[in-house]
Simulated scan of single mutants.
Amino acid sequence: MDLKQHIRTIPDFPKPGILFYDISTLLAHNAAWRACVEQLAEKVRPWKPQKLVGIESRGFLTAAPLALELGLGFTMVRKRGKLPGETVSYVYELEYGTDTVEIQADAITPGERVVILDDLMATGGTMAASVDLVRKVGGEVAGAACIIELTGLGGRDELGVPFESLIQYEE
Rank of each mutant, 00 (worst) to 15 (best):
A128Y: 03
I108V: 13
D118R: 13
M127C: 09
T100S: 06
C146K: 01
E112H: 04
A144T: 15
G85C: 06
G138M: 04
A142P: 11
A145Q: 04
D119C: 11
M121Y: 12
D106C: 05
Q104R: 15
V137Q: 04
L120D: 07
T87P: 11
D132I: 11
L117Q: 03
S89W: 09
Y90G: 11
E102C: 04
A144M: 13
L120R: 06
K136V: 12
E112V: 05
L120S: 07
D118T: 13
A129S: 04
D119Q: 12
M127H: 07
A142S: 14
I147R: 06
S89V: 09
E95T: 14
D118Q: 10
R113P: 04
L133N: 05
G138V: 07
V141W: 00
P110H: 01
V115M: 12
D99S: 15
D106H: 12
D99P: 07
E102H: 00
G138L: 00
E93W: 09
L120F: 08
L94C: 08
T100L: 11
P110I: 02
V115F: 13
G138S: 00
A129Q: 04
I108T: 14
M121S: 07
G125Q: 10
D119I: 10
G125F: 11
G111E: 02
A129M: 02
V114N: 05
S130K: 08
G97T: 04
M121R: 15
R135Q: 14
C146R: 03
P110S: 01
V141E: 01
V101N: 14
V131W: 02
V137H: 08
S130M: 06
G111Y: 06
P110D: 02
T87N: 08
I103V: 15
T123K: 12
V101I: 14
G143W: 02
I116D: 08
L94A: 12
